[in-house]
C-alpha cells in the first residue's frame, strides 16, 4: 500500500537559475544582430542607427527621455491596473449571471471592434487632454484579454466541485473564494502577460490621440517629425525596456501565485509543521 512513489516534476523547478540566463543571451544576440546588419549593409544613421549610436543618444538626451519614460510608465501602470481590475470584475459578474452575460458580451465585442484611435478621438472631446482619456484607452486594450481568460477560468470549474462544496455546507461566497477564484489564476496570468505588452502599445496610441504632455510617445513623434532617427530609436528602445520590465514583473508574480504549476510541493510557509511531533514509526517505508 505504501510502495507507490509520487511522480515529481522537480526537473521543471530546477530551471530557476537558467530562467534569467537565456532571455539575457537572446537579447544580447538581438542587439548584436542589429549591429551586424547596420555594419554589414553600411546603413546610414538617418535610416537605421546602430545600437551604439542609439545608446549614445539615450545618454545624451537622458533627462528628457527619463521624464517621458516615467510619465508614460505612470499612464501604463494605472491603465494596466484599471483595465485588469475592470476585466476581472466584469468576468466575475458575467460568470455569475447568465442574463448579464448575454447582455454584456456583445457590448464587450463591440468595444474591441471599434478602432481605439476612433474611441480616442471621442474621448479627447469628452475628457480633454489630461490623464483620463489615456487611462481609458489603455484600460480598453487591457481589459479584454483579462475578461475572456478569467471568464474561461471561472467557467472551467467542475460543476461537481461546486456541488460538492455545496454539499459540505459552504455558502456562495466561500465557494467563490475557495474553489472559483484560485481557478482563475492560471488563465488570469496568461492574460496579464499579454496585456503587459499590449498596454505599452496602448500607451503610445493614447499619447498619439490624446496627449499634450511630455510622454515617451510624444517624444518619439516629435523626433520622427524632425527626421531624427536616433531619437526615434532611443524612444523605441525605452518602450521595449518598459514592455520587458512589465512582462518580467508579471512573470515573477505568476510564479509566486501559482506554485502548483512548477513544483510538486507547496512553498515552505504552507508546509505542515510536524517537526515538533514524534513521527510514529508506523510510517511504513
Amino acid at each position: 500500500m505504501s510502495n507507490e512513489k509520487p511522480k515529481t516534476i522537480s526537473s521543471i523547478s530546477d530551471s530557476n537559475s537558467s530562467s534569467i540566463f537565456y532571455p539575457i543571451i537572446s537579447i544580447i544576440g538581438l542587439i548584436f544582430l542589429w549591429w551586424a546588419v547596420v555594419e554589414a549593409f553600411d546603413i546610414p544613421e538617418y535610416v537605421l542607427p546602430g545600437p551604439f549610436a542609439t545608446f549614445h543618444e539615450i545618454i545624451l538626451d537622458w533627462p528628457e527621455l527619463w521624464h517621458g519614460f516615467t510619465s508614460t510608465g505612470q499612464e501604463f501602470v494605472y491603465g494596466f491596473i484599471i483595465g485588469s481590475l475592470v476585466g476581472f470584475v466584469l468576468a466575475v459578474i458575467m460568470a455569475n449571471s447568465k442574463l448579464l452575460n448575454k447582455i454584456l458580451y456583445p457590448i464587450m465585442i463591440v468595444s474591441q471592434a471599434i478602432p481605439v484611435i476612433a474611441i480616442g478621438a471621442a474621448l479627447v472631446i469628452w475628457l480633454g487632454f489630461g490623464l483620463a482619456p489615456k487611462l481609458v484607452i489603455i484600460a480598453l486594450i487591457v481589459f479584454f484579454p483579462v475578461l475572456i481568460n478569467v471568464l474561461d477560468g471561472l467557467q472551467s470549474v467542475d460543476v461537481d466541485m461546486l456541488n460538492l462544496s455545496k454539499a459540505m455546507g459552504a455558502n456562495r461566497w466561500r465557494i467563490f473564494l475557495t474553489v472559483q477564484l484560485p481557478a482563475t489564476y492560471v488563465p488570469l496570468f496568461s492574460a496579464l502577460k499579454m496585456s503587459a505588452t499590449f498596454s505599452v502599445t496602448g500607451a503610445v496610441l493614447a499619447e498619439q490621440t490624446a496627449s499634450s504632455q511630455a510622454g515617451l510617445g510624444q517624444y518619439m513623434m516629435a523626433q520622427a517629425s524632425r527626421l531624427n532617427t536616433k531619437g526615434t530609436f532611443a524612444a523605441i528602445i525605452l518602450f521595449a525596456i518598459m514592455g520587458l520590465l512589465a512582462f518580467s514583473l508579471v512573470s515573477v508574480w505568476e510564479r509566486l501565485a501559482t506554485p502548483w504549476k512548477q513544483h510538486s510541493k507547496v512553498p515552505f510557509y504552507r508546509q505542515a509543521r510536524i517537526a515538533h511531533r514524534d513521527i510514529p514509526s508506523s510510517q511504513v517505508k
Binding site: S2, R270, Q271
Partner: peptide, 17 residues
Amino acid sequence: QEYGLGDYLDNFPHSMS
C-alpha cells in the same frame, strides 16, 4: 499519517498517484 499519506502532506495533487 495513519493512512499512508504522511510523506505527501505537502504535495500538490498532480504529483500523486
